[in-house]
């Protein structure tokens, strides 16, 4: 049985300080150790990567660290995520697929990538189109892959307006397509605006995603 408390405050503290100091190799070692212990990938994503990036965000917000430090921490985290790929992509596949993307002008892509990875971990094909993806590219991919579901990730609240217009276009072009939306843009509200679309659902976390959408099929 895997010890779920492997990521305690002490381990987290040292990881965060390595991350802020740009000590990629030390962070690498910690993640490798957790992966070797077969910890749930979701826990590594949320209790280590997400928590530290949120902390980086608030340090940056309070002018405690520079943009350069924030950039480096983000880059290191993106690199570390690929350490989990041998686990993520080794699951047996079921006949389900999802396309996850960030819209045009949305440069935050880590959350979306995690979502795509969670689909993969559960046997779905989780395609990830990345940051700043034009609407036309998304449509091309939908036509090509015929996914069961499309997920949109949104981090900056001023992109909500854009999102609504994309949802408008998507649901008229693909009336039966199921769409899920998530990300920090909705931390200060805005979820209500989604309720006009019958096929669109807001999902708060990776756990909700797994329980409510993926396992439910």
């Amino acid at each position: 049985m895997v010890n779920q408390n492997l990521i305690d405050d002490r381990l987290y503290g040292s990881y965060l300080s390595f991350l802020l100091n740009g000590q990629r190799n030390e962070c690498h070692k910690i993640v490798k150790k957790l992966l070797d212990a077969e910890l749930d990938i979701k826990d590594i994503y949320i209790k280590l990567f997400q928590r530290s990036l949120y902390d980086v965000g608030s340090l940056w917000e309070h002018n405690k660290i520079s943009v350069a430090v924030e950039h480096l921490a983000t880059s290191i985290t993106e690199g570390l995520m690929s350490l989990a790929y041998p686990v993520i992509f080794s699951t047996d596949k079921i006949d389900r697929s999802a396309i996850i993307t960030c819209m045009a002008n949305e440069y935050h892509q880590i959350g979306g990538r995690m979502v795509a990875d969670i689909f993969e971990l559960n046997g779905w094909n989780g395609y990830f189109l990345g940051a700043n993806t034009p609407y036309e590219d998304l449509c091309k991919m939908i036509d090509d892959k015929q996914p069961h579901l499309v997920g949109l990730s949104l981090s900056v609240y001023y992109n909500i307006k854009n999102l609504l217009s994309i949802l408008e276009r998507l649901s008229s072009a693909y009336p039966t397509l199921k769409i899920i939306v998530g990300g920090q843009a909705f931390r200060q509200g805005g979820k209500e605006s989604l309720s006009v679309y019958a096929n669109v659902q807001y999902i708060e976390s990776l756990y909700d995603l797994e329980e409510g959408i993926i396992k439910d099929k």
Binding site: Y107, F128, G130, A131, N132
Partner: peptide, 10 residues
């Protein structure tokens, strides 16, 4: 650089 790094990772 940020964009390139993200693309590389994708």
């Amino acid at each position: 650089l940020i964009v390139l790094n993200s693309e590389l990772n994708n």
